[in-house]
Amino acid sequence: MSKLIALTEDERDCYQEITNVAMGQAADQLARLLDVYVVLPIPNVNIIERNEFKMTIKSLEDAPSVSAVCQGFIGAGVAGEALLIFNDSSFSDISQLLKYSQELNTEEELEMLMDVANVLNGACIQGIGKQLDINFSQSHPIILGQHRPISELLDEKHVTWQRTMAIEINYTIEDHNINCDLLLLFTEESVLHMNRLISFLLED
């Protein structure tokens, strides 16, 4: 049994700050790509138990159907996944922004989902890596589901972990009905390792 992970108040603040910087960079890139103003909330850092996980993602989006893409990242003792959950009602607005044709078929929607996920995940993961001096490997993105109720995204029977650190970031775009959630999930061993890394930042 591995040691149960927990965060002190300082550590939580530190992760929040690191994420803040990283998501700022991601939002900046998205703003340049789309020429819009991206609203940034304060990221939410939490340790969640496996049985709370479904509830956590449910609480992020109350939409009847969502689409989700996840991408694994690993480097220097830190491993995790970036999960982008996209409210399905945002599709028409984002297709306008990305200048896709009005009526999207399934492939085009997927294409768009991947484009947005790529910008948000990529920039955010690299941003965090840069601050912690880690060069992350990123795996191919995987579609967890398109147009499905959020409870169907995850196969709970096969969950192998006990606790995870989740950083939630809710991106919205001004004047548009666009709402998506980026969830950065870190494994337990990674959190222990990252706590050591950030202890240098917290020293003074």
């Binding site: 491993a79 996944e81 999960l83 795996s139 967890l144 995850l154 192998t160 494994t187």
Partner: peptide, 12 residues
């Protein structure tokens, strides 16, 4: 090596 998708993945 561990699975590249440690949270949502099903493989050990």
């Amino acid at each position: 090596f561990s699975n590249n998708h440690p949270i949502t993945g099903r493989a050990d």
